[in-house]
Amino acid sequence: MSPILLIEQILNGLQFGVMLFLMAAGLTLIFGVMGLINLAHGSLYMIGAFAAAAVAGWSGSFLLALAAALAAAAAAGVLVEILVIRRLYRRDHLDQVLATFALILIFSEGTRWLFGSFPLYLDVPEALSGPVTLPGGIRYPLYRLVIIAIGLAVAAGLFWLIARTRIGIRIRAGENDREMIAALGVDISRLYTLVFALGAALAGLAGALVGALQSVQVGMGEPVLILALVVIVIGGIGSIRGALVGALLVGLTDKLGGFLLPLLFRGFMEPAAATSAGAALASMLIYILMAGVLIFRPTGLFGAGT
């Protein structure tokens, strides 16, 4: 095992983790402020990716595509919040799970209806394509580094937004006491729509950024959604800091596990058996991590005790 390969996997893990954070941040905000568990978050991610691919195909500009992804996902978020989600805040989690599962069905099949079953492709912009050489002689795709940078910048921006701005104060106040801030004259239902749109836009951004790495297709959102749920559960639902730590933990565990476990198993097994056993265990690793965290800390690493 060479250190270069290991560092490459660490960078892959970071990139994956940052991506998960963009999804998880929205989910955890929505849960923290509104108490809503939103399974349709993966659909917003898919909408972002499709909007980006469609606009990039039409205009050829990646920046325009990103803007379209943000706008489309936020608009879909606002629409869904006003039509459906608003009715669910006071319902129990079972109703929320079911209604948002229904939204997944509607969004997925609706997208298939509009765009067909064949995947779309979104190209990495030319200025960002190709590898760069990092200190130490490691060559790594520039685009993935940019994703890491964007993700960390968004994380910093979110912390600033929540901790330092008036909107952030209202969001935190809404988390603590809904009636009190309504009594102080804040339009709570507008605040909720805003938070939902913010979460949706982040999911759309994640979809567009990842869309350039993989194919854009119906059903792309659900695997990411489940991982993002794992992230917020590990981090503690409602905590942005927990989402960041959880996302990086899950990203690194997944990439490093897939790389290291087969090597580890090779120490005492035949190579073929080691590869398949290692891969099998690696694919389960993050769920084992999550189960482990929940067993020892039933409300996640940064979750408030219930």
Partner: peptide, 14 residues
């Protein structure tokens, strides 16, 4: 050992 949303999520994870 968990309840509410955490129970939904841990069963999903399993």
């Amino acid at each position: 050992r968990t309840s509410g949303v955490y129970f939904i999520m841990i069963t999903l994870a399993f």
